[in-house]
Amino acid sequence: MGELSQADTTLGASIADEVRLLKRIPLFAGIDTKKLKLLAFTSERQRFEPGDLLVREGEVGTSAFIIIDGEADVLIETAHGPLCVSEVRRYGIVGDIAILCDVRRTATVRARTKVDALCITKDLFFSLVHEFPEMGIEIMRVLARRVDRMTRLVRDTVDRHDVEAAAGSDHAAAPDAGDGAPTPGAH
C-alpha cells in the first residue's frame, strides 16, 4: 500500500495529497492548483469493500471516482453473464465523461480489493466550472485534444483499411495532411 492509502486511517489524510493525485489525471492536469484544492476539499473520500460497486452499467452517472488505492474490475453485461474487460487501479479514473454530460454508464466497476476513492460529483464540478470559466477552457482544451486523437485514430484505422483494400494506392502517403491540428503533446 502506498503513501496515500495510509492517509485516511491516520491523521495525515490531506487534500494536498489529493491535489497531487488530481494533477496526474489529464482532465485536471492543466487546472490551477487552488481550484484543484477546492475541488478536493469539497469532494468526498469514499471507501469500498471488495465486491462493492462503484458504478453500475446502464445507470445515469453523476460522479467520477479517482482511485486513490485498491483495484477494481471493469465488467460488461453479456449474454453469458458479466465479463471482465479491463481493470482500474491506483490513479485511475472511473466515469470522467459522466461529470461532463448525461451518459449512461457503459460498464460496471466493481471493487476487487478494498478501494479508496475520491468522489467528484457532477453538480460540484459544474458549480466550479461556472464559477471559474478558465477551468472550463482548460477542460475544453483537454477534450479537444482527445477528439483530435480519436479522429486521428479513426482515420488511421480507415486508412489502414483502405491500404489493405487497395494496396499500392497513394492514399496512405500523408495521414496528417490538410488537418492543421496540433500534434498530441505538442502543447
Binding site: L11, A13, I15
Partner: peptide, 14 residues
C-alpha cells in the same frame, strides 16, 4: 480532521 483533510492535525498535535 477526517472530513476536512486539511492535514493540520498531525499525531503530535493530536
Amino acid at each position: 480532521p477526517a472530513r476536512h483533510r486539511l492535514g493540520v492535525v498531525d499525531d503530535a498535535l493530536a
